[in-house]
Amino acid sequence: MKSLLPILTVLAAIVALWYAGTVWLNAQWTHDQAARAGVEVTFAEVVADAMAQERPVLPAPHQVARGLWDGVTGHKVTSKRSLVYHAQVTLSATLVGFVIGTLAGILLAVGIVHNRAMDLSVMPWAIASQTIPILAIAPMVIVVLASVGVTGLLPKAVISAYLSFFPVVVGMVKGLRAPDHMQLDLLRTYNAGRWDTFWKLRLPASMPYLFASLKVSVAASLVGAIVGELPAGASAGLGARLLSGSYYGQTIQIWAALFAAAILAAGLVMIIGVIERGTLRRMGMVR
């Protein structure tokens, strides 16, 4: 709790800066309007107007909060204007992709740890692939899968899976190799086979690494789902909200969708954090 005060101070500073930016960026429009009408405006009027424009350059924090609140509670959950509806579309793609990517990543990591040839040939590519802007292929995946008749949730999930796949591979390989020689030797003195070593030593030892990379990969798979919604005129999802907002200059809609995405990401990371703490505590790994 001791760190709460500094965090709140920083957040307050950010909000204050934001309000200042709102006035600074939106004042131009107000001045233009006033000049067209041939009236002088005082500074107080400029500030008041900057806070309440319909399509501001930078919406004020309370406008974004209002947009977010309206989007969440103002419409029926099934309505296309409800942010809950769009968030749920994005979330389902994220989760499907996350599960696929994580399972595939764990399987590949197990293969890499147990097979030398796989380690030497696949691992360098797994690392190199992290340096490649994979997100750039998102539009192509969507269009290609649509042209073979796969539409809807699955194409986005494929991108999510691909993005969440590599952090898991790299983290799990590290984790499965985490037991040191002493522990491996001990299991050998027990006459434990490869399989027993895997289930009783390697897998439990890899859990902290797994959760660390799960946090990275769930955030990555949300980004993948959002970017997957950008091309090809997707009509639902937070990415589609961003795109339509940017087409029609609805800045408040963009910011509201952005904050919805941020809250979603924070929530997902937090859920994994809770599961992590529970699991590690039951395994006796929390210090």
Binding site: P6, I7, A261
Partner: peptide
């Protein structure tokens, strides 16, 4: 400032900033 900015920075680093 460090105690305040670090958690915020860690938090923001996990957000979909591409948006």
């Amino acid at each position: 400032l460090k105690a305040g900015l670090l958690p915020v920075g860690n938090f923001v680093a996990a957000l979909p900033i591409v948006g």
